[in-house]
Write a protein that binds this DNA or RNA. Structure first.
Lengths: 220, 220
DNA sequence: AAAAATTTTTAGATTTACCTAAAAATTAAA
DNA sequence: TTTAATTTTTAGGTAAATCTAAAAATTTTT
């Protein structure tokens, strides 16, 4: 059994490992909003518990056990997010912080019943996949909107930024999950992207375009 | 803002204060499953924070602020219990431990939306009243079953013991909330109570009878 | 490949909530 | 009302997770 803090470390290492193979101390420190020295301490502890593999100065990787524990926390986080949005009418930009707390409630029974109550959802309100109780989930085949070319079409199925500011911005533009889009132009001047929606045309910066995930329905 | 542990102390002091006016160190230690010395430390801290009034060797009482904080935790605990039973189909004897954790989730928004989602329930699965968001709730007018006389009738509306063993026992006997009862006999030998239910007759020990709460519909 | 910059670790402290053992105060009993 | 029993507090310490400052290792730059 892991402590609240240990769980957070595992979760963050898991997310960082999605991008880079061996996760660095400084990166963890930044995510955990703590100091590198503290991270080193905790990493040693996690290594002693067999949750991470650790070689001094070489960063960490999750062991099988550690990865399973991390996936379990991610599963809880995402299920709670679905609960907050589907049942309690939270907006997708309001759920993150509360889910950060709820994900640490320790009860397998609770989370299995919640999963059932929610109808075994496959994705959370931001389009991220929800692992099943065995930790399995489909590797999602997303393309970043910014990688699309003029004329390409697709559907918004995820975001890679969960900040409230970003999500509110998308909401205001009408760029929410499930919305079909077509790239109508990419501005020469600043590379901003002109998008055709069902009923209107919107323009987004490259920075925004980086964090919108599209399930492509092929080139046009 | 209180820590997880401070919240538990406040809650326990609140519950103990329902029985005795000034709450003793040893009683708190027992409930908190800790040592009296630790309680003294924490009490000082709570006193510094203005949550309790404390005179050495004389026990503690909650201040207005402390009481409000405690009631807020009780409110959360009971709402989560309703959620677990009504929405996730937990049994009334299975909810206590999980609710102990959930009660510490810090989000006013969450709890107000949960309250609404549940239809603003007035009592939890054990019949305990749920404070509204202003901390107000009806002082319940329960009578202990053991205080009833032969021929008295009433309805089971609460329990004063939340252990799984006790609740399972009641369940098996058919003594659940809302069940109308009539005292048909009180055994001379051991004082055990013979109860007439709609469809059957059951016998319970005095110890069990102490912890069943009845809303009386008057003498017979 | 040496110097500079960056990253990571060590060493030594701090805070929170807890502990044991012993002292002090209160309450109950003789 | 003195003694005994109980309750509570104090004193000094521990473990978890953090910190700062300085040392060590690694990486990058020149």
């Amino acid at each position: 059994m892991q402590s609240y803090t240990e769980e957070n470390y595992l979760k963050i290492i898991y997310h960082l490992a999605e991008k880079t193979t061996n996760v660095q101390t400084n990166a963890i420190a930044e995510q955990m909003q703590t100091k590198p020295a503290s991270v080193t301490d905790m990493i040693k502890k996690l290594a002693d518990k067999g949750l991470v593999d650790y070689i001094k100065y070489q960063g960490v990787t999750l062991t099988e056990t550690g990865k399973n524990a991390a996936i379990d926390i991610v599963r809880k986080h995402r299920l709670w997010e679905v609960f907050l949005v589907d049942k309690l009418n939270f907006k997708w930009d309001e759920v993150h912080d509360v889910a950060e707390e709820l994900e640490h409630i320790k009860s397998t029974e609770l989370i299995e019943r919640l999963d059932e109550f929610l109808g075994f959802p496959k994705a959370d309100p931001h389009g991220d996949p929800i692992p099943d109780k065995n930790g399995r989930f489909a590797k999602t085949q997303f393309i970043k909107l910014i990688e699309l070319k003029v004329g390409d079409t697709g559907t918004i199925t995820g975001v890679s930024q969960h900040s409230s500011a970003f999500l509110k911005h998308l909401e205001k533009l009408g760029l929410t999950l499930g919305i079909p889009i077509k790239i109508s132009d990419i501005t020469d001047f600043d590379g901003s992207v002109e998008i055709q929606l069902a009923d209107k045309q919107v323009n987004i910066s490259r920075e925004v375009a980086k964090h919108i995930l599209i399930s492509s329905n092929g080139k046009n």
